[in-house]
Each structure stands twice: as C-alpha cells, then as structure tokens.
C-alpha cells in the first residue's frame, strides 16, 4: 500500500487527495493549494516553486502552465505523489499536452482517465508507478503504433523460435526491416537455428504483412 501521509492535518484538509501526498519534496510547493488558496496566481506560484526545486527547464514550466489551472494543479499533485524525476516530469507534461491536443480535449480530461487515476491511487513504489504512468501516457500518445507493436511482439513470441534466435522489431516501427540474430557455438547449433527459421517462414510473412499495416495477423 502506498504510504499515506496523515501527519499533516492541513495537507489532508486540502484538495490534494491523501493518496497523492506521499512525497516530501514538493509539499512546500503545494502549500498554497493545501491552504485553500486556489486562485490561478497561487497555482502558478506553487508550480514555479516546485519547478525550481526540480530544476525543470523553463520551456517545460511554460508548457505546464499552458495546461490550464486545473490540469496544471492535477499534474503537480501527480508529480508530488509519484516523486517524478525532472526528466520524467518534463516528459509527462509534454505527453499530456500532446494527447490533449491530438484528441481535442483538455489536460484535465486526460489526467482523469481511469488508467491514470488508478496509477495515482494505486499500489507499488513511487518509481514503479512513475514508470507505469509514462508507459500509459506513451500508449495514449501513440495508440496505433503501440497497438501494432503489441500485435507484432505477440506474433514474434508465437514463432516459438529457439533461444539462440532473436527477432528484433524495428525501433519504434520506423521501418519495415526485422533484424534476426543467431547465436551459435557450433555448426549443429547454427543448423538448428536456421532450420527453425525456415520452418517459421510462413508465419514471418504474416509478420511482415503486419509490419506493413495489414489489419489482421
């Protein structure tokens, strides 16, 4: 279970959900929010203070503030809760902004998605949940790419090739070329790997089709 912060009554009383308040770093930044001062200027001041602590580049701070007062506040709470590192925070800001823009929605509605609130409220260490958050945001940001990638990965697994053969998908599915690596310490091992590859060739053609955007594997 995440460590609940119950030792500070004024933080518990504020709009920040208790489950978000695990971290120490950032509590000072959250003070105006916790004190019930919810106007935009206070949020901005809180975010700027937190950004200074985190040494967040100004470009990211500007992008953060452009998420709107409510979205920016929610992201601050999330960052405090998951103890996002500076690079992670910058990536999250960018991803949330881009998802909202792509989908014609707001940062608030992105951050209120079940996949994200469940990470915010969920179990696991802060670093684990931070990396989960980034994964989920990347999937939302690149939905087709991730759908294709998941399909291809399971198709590659289904080939059931010997451990001496590794099939590599192109990085970020940026091209149509697979890489095949064979590790062999003897001619017999090499023969076995080649035979397995040959036997799998029909299923490879399905993988190539999928890599080229054919809908069904």
């Amino acid at each position: 279970m995440p460590k609940q912060v119950a030792d500070s009554t004024h933080e518990m009383a504020g709009p920040v959900p208790a489950t978000f308040q695990q971290g120490d770093c950032g509590r000072a930044a959250l003070a105006p929010v916790a004190d019930g001062c919810e106007n935009g200027a206070d949020h901005e001041a809180a975010i700027r203070r937190y950004a200074v602590q985190r040494r967040l580049p100004e470009r990211s701070v500007e992008a953060w503030l452009k998420l709107g007062a409510e979205g920016a506040r929610m992201l601050l709470e999330l960052s405090v809760a998951l103890k996002l590192r500076t690079g992670q925070l910058a990536a999250v800001i960018e991803l949330v902004a881009e998802i909202a823009l792509r989908e014609g929605t707001t940062a608030v509605s992105v951050l209120k998605r079940g996949e994200i609130t469940s990470i915010a409220k969920g179990v696991g260490s802060a670093p684990e949940r931070a990396s989960k958050l980034l994964n989920v945001l990347r999937i939302l940001r690149y939905p087709e790419l991730n759908r294709a990638l998941a399909k291809l990965q399971s198709a590659v697994e289904a080939l059931r090739l010997p451990r001496s053969v590794t099939v590599g998908l192109p990085k970020d599915l940026s091209s149509g070329q697979l890489s095949i690596e064979i590790r062999a310490g003897s001619l017999a091992e090499l023969d076995e790997a080649v035979r397995a590859l040959r036997e799998a060739s029909a299923r490879f053609s399905e993988i190539f089709d999928s890599l080229e955007g054919a809908d069904e594997l």
Binding site: E144, L145, P170, D172, L173, S174, S175, G213
Partner: peptide
C-alpha cells in the same frame, strides 16, 4: 517517429 533517414515520419505500418 524518427526514421532511418533522420526524418520524423508516420510509423511504418501507418504510413
């Protein structure tokens, strides 16, 4: 995504 030619292009299956 960043393609082998150094340009961002739609990922290969989509393209």
């Amino acid at each position: 995504v960043l393609s082998p030619d150094g340009r961002y292009r739609a990922c290969y299956p989509m393209r």
